[in-house]
C-alpha cells in the first residue's frame, strides 16, 4: 500500500467562494445576515416586519432560498426591496455558489443590508458559509424549548437567536426561560431577542440592534 497525504477540507470549494462573497460584501460596505431556522418558525414574517421597520430608510435587499416555489419572494416584493429567489429544487441548504450566482441578478446600488433567508432546515445550512457577517437563528415557541439541544450545531454557529411567536406562549408547551437557557448552554455568547410578528412585540428591539450593526 502507498499513502498520499491530503489534509483537505471537504467543503473547501464552498469556503473559497464564501470568502469571495465576503470580500465583495466588505468592498460594498454591505452588512449581510444569514437567516436560518426550521420550516415554519417565522423567518419570512420576521423579514417582513424588518422591512416595514426600515421602510426604505435603510435600503435592504433580500435573497430568498426555498426548496420549491417563489411564494416568499412574492411576499417580499410588496415591500419594494430588491429580491431574488433561489429555488434549490430539493436541495436542503443554500451554498456560497448559489448566493454568488444570485448576487448577479440583484441590484445592490444603495443597499446597506442584505438578508439571506436560508432554506427551512436546522441541520444542513449550519455547515455552509455563504460569506455572511453572521447567522441569525429563529426558534419559535411552537417548536418547544428543546430545539437548541436537538440541533446544537446551528445554535453554536449563530450569533443571534430570535425567539419568535412569544404571543403564543400561553397556548404551547414551551418555557421561554428553558429555551433561552438551553440555547445559552450551547452558545453562551448568543444575543437573544424575543419577538411576535403578530403583536410586533420585540420587533423594534431586534431592528434597532440590526440597524446599529448595519451602520457600523
Amino acid at each position: 500500500m502507498s499513502v498520499i497525504t491530503v489534509e483537505r477540507k471537504v467543503l473547501e470549494k464552498n469556503d473559497e467562494i464564501a470568502r469571495r462573497n465576503r470580500a465583495m460584501f466588505s468592498e460594498r460596505h454591505l452588512f449581510v445576515i444569514n437567516l436560518v431556522s426550521s420550516p415554519g418558525s417565522g423567518k419570512t414574517s420576521i423579514l417582513e416586519r424588518t422591512l416595514e421597520y426600515f421602510n426604505k430608510r435603510v435600503k435592504v435587499a433580500v435573497i430568498e432560498g426555498d426548496v420549491q416555489t417563489d411564494f416568499d419572494a412574492q411576499r417580499i416584493a410588496r415591500y419594494d426591496a430588491p429580491v431574488v429567489q433561489i429555488v434549490t429544487n430539493g436541495g436542503c441548504h443554500l451554498d456560497a455558489k448559489l448566493v454568488e450566482d444570485a448576487l448577479g441578478s440583484l441590484d445592490l446600488s444603495g443597499v446597506k443590508l442584505l438578508i439571506i433567508e436560508n432554506v427551512g432546515n436546522l441541520v444542513c445550512p449550519s455547515n455552509y458559509d455563504l460569506g455572511e457577517a453572521m447567522k441569525v437563528v429563529v426558534a419559535s415557541t411552537t417548536e418547544g424549548d428543546d430545539k437548541p439541544l436537538k440541533y446544537p450545531s446551528m445554535f453554536q454557529n449563530a450569533s443571534v437567536l430570535i425567539i419568535n411567536k412569544i404571543d403564543l406562549l400561553p397556548y404551547v408547551n414551551c418555557s421561554l426561560e428553558t429555551l433561552r437557557n438551553n440555547a445559552l448552554k450551547i452558545n453562551p455568547s448568543l444575543k437573544v431577542f424575543e419577538t411576535s410578528c403578530t403583536t410586533k412585540s420585540g420587533i423594534s428591539e431586534w431592528c434597532s440592534w440590526l440597524e446599529q450593526n448595519t451602520n457600523r
Partner: peptide, 13 residues
C-alpha cells in the same frame, strides 16, 4: 470534515 489520506494498492500487491 476533512480528507486526510488516500491509500492505494501497489502494482506488486
Amino acid at each position: 470534515l476533512q480528507v486526510t489520506e488516500i491509500e492505494l494498492e501497489n502494482e506488486e500487491e
